[in-house]
Structures are given as structure tokens and as C-alpha cells.
């Protein structure tokens, strides 16, 4: 298992590094990630949401539905833990 795991890990890592070869450089201000969707968040945040903190405005407004999903995840985790760990009343004596 250890050898197999090592081989799988090295192959996965090699594939991931192979993918980075074509990536834009670190800190490049003209990379697609920085120039396609996000400029609008920076320029329009005050007009659209009147919030100077751009992360907040994206989190709670532009992509607020993701945040609803995020809270759902936490709620699911809480309910799941209760469901998993709740014991039958009888077994408390043990």
C-alpha cells in the first residue's frame, strides 16, 4: 500500500506540475483570472453595493448564493454530527 500510494502520489503531483507549465506567471496583473471577471467587482463595488470591502461585497452580494450554500454545508455538518453521535438512551448506562 505504501509503495502504491507513493507511486500514485508522485504521478498525480507530476501531472499537476505539468499543468502549471502553461499557467500565467505569479503576480501577473494581466493574467486571465485578474482581467476577465474580477475587474468589474473592483470598479463597480461602490456603485453596486456601496461596500468598500470588495471581498465582502462579492461574498454577500454578487455570489451570495454560494454563501447560502456555505451555511447549508455547516448546518448539514452539525446535523450529521448529531445524527452520527447520538446514542440510544439505554446505552448511556454503559
Amino acid at each position: 500500500m505504501k509503495v502504491l500510494g507513493f507511486i500514485v502520489t508522485v504521478l498525480t503531483g507530476a501531472l499537476l506540475i505539468y499543468g502549471t507549465l502553461d499557467m500565467p506567471n505569479y503576480g501577473d496583473p494581466d493574467s486571465p483570472a485578474s482581467s476577465h471577471v474580477s475587474p468589474r467587482y473592483i470598479t463597480d463595488t461602490e456603485i453596486d453595493t456601496a461596500t468598500p470591502n470588495i471581498v465582502t461585497s462579492v461574498l454577500a452580494d454578487y455570489r451570495g448564493y454560494d454563501t447560502l450554500g456555505e451555511t447549508t454545508v455547516i448546518f448539514t455538518a452539525g446535523m450529521s454530527c448529531i445524527l452520527i453521535l447520538r446514542r440510544r438512551k439505554k446505552s448511556y448506562k454503559v
Partner: peptide, 21 residues
Amino acid sequence: VFNLYVFLEVASLAGYALIAI
């Protein structure tokens, strides 16, 4: 695609719990 990931995790977490009991 990212929203899909969030709900994929909701479904997975619920699934783990439902199986564990």
C-alpha cells in the same frame, strides 16, 4: 462550476452521515 462544488459537498456530507448510522 464552483456553486456545483458547494452543493456537491452538501450532498456528500449528508451522504456520509446517512451511511454511518
